[in-house]
Amino acid sequence: MSSPIATWSAEGQERAQQLLALYPDKRSAVMPLLYVASLEHGHVTNEGMQQVAELIGVTATQVRSVATFYTMYKHEPVGRYLVSVCTSISCHLLGGDEVLDAACGAAGVEVGGTSEDDLVTVERVECIGACGGAPAVQVNYELIEGVTDIKAIDLIDWLRNTTPEVVLADELQQLFGGQKSFDWGVPEPDGAIAPVPAFGPYGSAEEGR
């Protein structure tokens, strides 16, 4: 009998085993496992959902039912950098829609589209909890507050030209941000290596690691 995730990276397999052991009921691991599967396959694929289903002992349909409920599971390929622009009320009041237009223009895409070089996807998102630093943008879920339309264009250009391995919020904030919701404290060494949230080994890397 072979493991359903034999094709995953060693880190992915290890993380999957940790997650399966973490909860009183394996099914609770479905959401974190979907992030790991996204990282392994580039996005949430049918194969990835089937693998997660087999790992936790439910049907693939049940996994898909969960995976399509939440907006952070991407069922189509996205660029290396997922740029999420908030246009909920506080960001809307302070120019979020203009930031979105500018980001789309710079990337040459419609909302939700991916640039021709496959580097940048620009999406509209609802509130990301940065209302005091509106308008806010996330790159691979790393936050930048106080973004303007002009800074948004710079951001897209910088991502496409610099292609950073790791997206570091403090760096982006310094380059493209402004007003913050509150002091961020000490700079974070961790950042995102892919368009999944950088938490634990999935999607995250320490600077210089």
Partner: peptide
């Protein structure tokens, strides 16, 4: 913790 809060999650972890 909401998925869009990886940094708060990291700090808590």
């Amino acid at each position: 913790i909401r998925g869009e809060y990886p940094k708060p999650a990291r700090r808590v972890q």
